[in-house]
Design a protein around this nucleic acid. Structure first.
Length: 650
DNA sequence: TTAGGGTTAG
């Protein structure tokens, strides 16, 4: 056999695609070098780490299967590759194979500390306590449970499975835990929501590094303790990039959107080089808050920066545009990607189009995704099912639901069942929806019943609504929006006694309805409006403009207030007054007053838009020749020339 | 040529 020329090894370092790996492999195979252990190992490593797409993993696995005597390194590399993939279960199969071999005669490969570290990561990623604890026993049998790296991975695995006590036992049995092991234990306390224990552990730590403080900041942020996180941050002299990122991401997760932006700016002013995490964090704040202007500024920054070809940043940008109401720009970011699109790029674009009611394009994109060789995952299916349900495409939705399992081997989760209930319910097929819920192989959750209740509210089915309500009273008795929904159903059919009963029960139990608000950005500033009369500052301007719009609408616009959405047993004239002051109307009035005429008015609302406001927006868009985009809790409504992109189906 | 703790978009 020809001896391996190890300069071949460096060739693989340049491979960034499976095609180039295949080309080098074909060449080496011709001269019989591909089976050299060093070269074969490098090939597998390159597929699993540098490329790591599922096709590359499959290629490496197939090649591995053709080798006569794969070594532990090759096993480990594949186990690692699968542990971070969409099929972490394959890590277990390979590990078991390696473990079985180790009992054979001769000198077969045996699992080592690397094998355990990687396979435990797979158990952690699957949150599988059962698999993780079995591996713990195996590690004990191999004398590796006290190994510093294996022990630390065991702590993280137990933390991921929510088993703080098991994590603690591993930690307590470590002969000499180092700072990494202490940090892993600190993370475990926060993951398992044991804040007091985390504080006590932090005080006892014999050594701390910057990661220890970052664990604390992140732990407080995830627990919603923003001020505690801020005080740790302020107490630090030296802050690294992860410290800044943790603050930015934490603010975004806790809806402190302005502060996320502010800290990003501060980070730049301090001369700290932002990473992709900083950009993802700040862009997700823009997406959630609907801050289109800020997203555009960040886009400008990205175009001039070293993030130009970063797929994660591109995806975050595309998502921000689509959630801020500019699906055209989202599509442009998607179409002009110079790096290979991944499953997240496709899914973001599909869900962006779906939220806009551009369902045919979403379906076309799903098809193109399949053609391109990128496999849809669970979230892609949620997006495409959402698209079908918001367009009333029952047959098509049903066929995607089947395809999920039959073609892609993905078991539908509770979210997918939720989409199906919504698909039937929204289309008015309430009997089918109820039958589907009754026959679900997993226990219906409160969300499933709430979806059904929502459908009953659209279609006025009091009987089924009451049944859903009974279930909800057991599963989530303190939810105010469920009661509001049921009282709406009674109000529409005029059963005022039942409306009053629900209102009374809410007031005795001191429940409050979520207050509705709408937000509009003007000259880089966000203005928030709430319903009702509140004459102060900029709101005065909005009321005056709204009054003028209303008179013009009633004179020549053919607008008749739709008062069914009003819940109280009051006279129609008063109801008119009530719907007239909904926050989205005020925001649009303010936009008409302050924004340049050629601009589109973007409004973000925290609740669903009501029928009256929907009619109002249609007529205003025609009468004032202006485009209005409203993002409500579940989708976008794009009003133009008197009609809405949702085609009145929402 | 492989590891463990801190931040990551749908």
């Amino acid at each position: 056999m020809i001896s391996a020329d190890h300069s071949c090894l460096t060739l693989f370092n340049c491979c960034r695609s499976l095609t180039s790996v295949k080309q080098i492999h074909a060449h080496l195979s011709k001269i019989g070098l591909d089976v050299d252990p060093l070269i074969a190992g490098k090939l597998i490593l390159q597929c699993c780490t540098a490329i790591s797409a599922s096709l590359a993993l499959t290629y490496a696995h197939h090649f591995f299967g053709c080798l006569k005597a794969p070594d532990t390194f090759m096993y480990n590399t594949l186990i690692r590759g699968y542990s971070e993939s969409q099929s972490p279960g394959c890590s277990f199969e390979l590990f078991n194979q390696l473990n079985r071999n180790s009992g054979c005669s001769g000198s077969p490969p045996r699992p080592d500390s690397f094998s355990f570290a990687f396979v435990l990561k797979a158990a952690a990623n699957m949150s599988s306590f059962r698999a993780g604890s079995q591996l713990h026993c195996q590690a004990f049998l191999h004398g590796l449970d006290a190994h510093l790296f294996v022990g630390t991975t065991l702590i993280s695995m137990y933390a991921e499975c929510g088993r703080r006590n098991s994590a603690r036992r591993v930690f307590d049995e470590m002969p000499q835990p180092n700072v990494v092991a202490w940090n892993a234990m600190l993370t475990a306390c926060f993951r398992c929501s044991d804040l007091e224990d985390a504080r006590a552990l932090f005080e006892r730590m014999p050594f701390k590094n910057s990661a220890s403080f970052n664990v604390q900041i992140s732990g407080f942020m995830k627990a919603g303790k923003v001020e505690s996180a801020r005080s740790v941050f302020n107490s630090l002299g030296l802050k690294d990039d992860v410290t800044w990122n943790t603050m930015i991401v934490g603010f975004a997760q806790n809806s402190y959107f302005d502060e996320a932006l502010m800290y990003f700016r501060d980070m730049l002013h301090m001369g700290i080089r932002p990473t992709e995490v900083s950009l993802i964090g700040v862009l997700s704040a823009c997406a959630d808050a609907g801050m289109l202007v800020s997203a555009k500024i960040l886009h400008g920054f990205v175009e001039k920066s070293w993030f130009l070809e970063n797929i994660s940043v591109r995806n975050a940008l595309l998502d921000a545009y689509s959630k801020c109401g500019d699906v055209g720009m989202a599509r442009s970011v998607f179409d002009h990607m110079t790096v290979d699109r991944n499953v997240i790029s496709w899914t973001c674009m599909i869900s962006g189009l779906a939220m806009y009611g551009r369902v045919n394009e979403a379906i076309q994109l799903f098809y193109e995704m399949e053609e391109s060789g990128v496999q849809p995952d669970r979230i892609t299916f949620i997006s495409i099912l959402y698209a079908c349900s918001h367009a009333g495409l029952i047959e098509q939705g049903h066929s995607y639901f089947s395809k999920m399992k039959d073609v892609y081997g993905l078991d539908p989760g509770i979210e997918h069942y939720g989409c199906m209930v919504d698909l039937y319910g929204r289309a008015g097929k309430l009997a089918e929806a109820y039958k589907f819920v009754s026959q679900m192989p997993i226990e219906p959750t409160d969300t499933i019943w709430r979806t059904l209740l929502g459908a009953c509210s659209i279609h006025g089915n009091v009987h089924l609504a009451q049944r859903a309500r009974e279930k909800l009273m057991v599963l989530d008795p303190n939810n105010s929006s469920d009661r509001v929904l049921l009282s709406n159903i009674y109000a529409v059919i005029g059963q005022w006694k039942d409306v009053a009963a629900i209102r009374n029960s809410m007031s005795t139990e001191r429940m409050k309805k979520d207050p509705g608000w709408s937000m509009i950005e003007v000259d880089k500033l966000a203005y928030k409006f709430t319903a009702g009369r509140n004459y102060s500052g900029f709101t005065q301007e909005a009321y005056e403009k709204l009054g003028e719009i209303m008179s013009r609408l009633k004179e020549g616009g053919g607008y008749v207030p739709e008062v069914k959405s009003v819940l109280h047993d009051i006279e129609d004239e008063e109801k008119e007054g009530s719907v007239a002051l909904h926050s989205e109307k005020l925001a649009v009035a303010f936009g008409l007053k302050r924004l340049h005429k050629s601009k589109t008015i973007h409004v973000m609302k925290n609740l669903r838009i009501c029928k009256d406001c929907h009619e109002f927006m249609k007529i205003v868009s025609q009468l004032y020749d202006v485009d209005i985009v409203v993002r409500d809790r579940s989708r976008f409504h794009s009003f133009k020339d008197g009609s809405c992109s949702c085609k009145d189906y929402w």
